[in-house]
Design a protein around this nucleic acid. Structure first.
Lengths: 129, 129
DNA sequence: CTACGAACTAGAGCCGTCTCTAGGTCAAGA
DNA sequence: TCTTGACCTAGAGACGGCTCTAGTTCGTAG
């Protein structure tokens, strides 16, 4: 049931380099088990955790902050409030990002509309000749 | 009606460094006019263009692609289709980004909910003693 | 045996995007 | 006259996040 680093790379979309990098940066919740020859053996839990990390990264959480969060989880029960703080803060940032992105989208869509109309009118003229 | 680089920095939120950098990277639609002593003098047009560039950057368009777009605009009429292509491509990317961001948001919101409930239950227990 | 592919480590390198430094010009006010 | 502050250029430096290299070690297939 254990997976090699290559298999995890496939399943997560991360490169093997990135996987080792993340491990070195301490953002894996639990120490990765090693198989014969010192090779990493990942569990489904590791993959699930990585997928969450990918979500956090995708939404712009910096690696050091993911590490802070991971550290809290590693420490175990009793710091849920701190974990919650980190998540809430990030949630707020993501919300802002979404608003900004929507603004950008609106602008782009307006411009696309204008250019589309213009290009269409040129095309119509050409056909009409 | 001309503005100094410092004034533009204030109005756009970019640093003066960033403004010079953007200029060097060729993402200003028109050559910035120079006043006495070789100082940059910006027009309202420049600011408007910069604000669009900021939108494009915020939504993840790389500087070289903004340059490509800017080059087309500088070249003048006749390449509207190419401009449209760049914008549409970017629009697509932004749309994807928004979907991803929403997924991340959902995950985070779920987790925040779980932690919030847990923290509340602990607090209730403490009060109830 | 040999060769191959996949893994290992430590550390260097790269890319994008600024950001800062050094050394200088200039204009206005004390 | 001296100082201050905003500006100038060219180029170096910083930072985040990977990505790649070099040199090894395995286990399996031919």
């Amino acid at each position: 049931m254990g997976l090699s680093i290559g298999q995890v790379a496939e399943r997560t979309g991360l490169s093997v380099h990135a996987l080792r990098f993340y491990e070195k940066e301490g953002i894996l919740a639990h120490q990765v088990h090693r198989g014969p020859g010192g090779r990493r053996v990942y569990t489904q839990q590791d993959i699930d955790w990585l997928k969450m990390c990918i979500m956090l990264r995708m939404s712009g959480m910096p690696v050091p902050e993911i590490r802070r969060y991971t550290d809290l989880v590693r420490q175990g029960d009793g710091n849920e409030l701190q974990r919650l703080d980190i998540l809430k803060e990030h949630q707020e940032r993501v919300a802002q990002q979404m608003v900004q992105l929507q603004e950008c989208m609106d602008l782009i869509t307006r411009k696309v509309g204008i250019y589309q109309d213009y290009v269409n009118s040129i095309a119509a003229r050409a056909v009409g000749q």
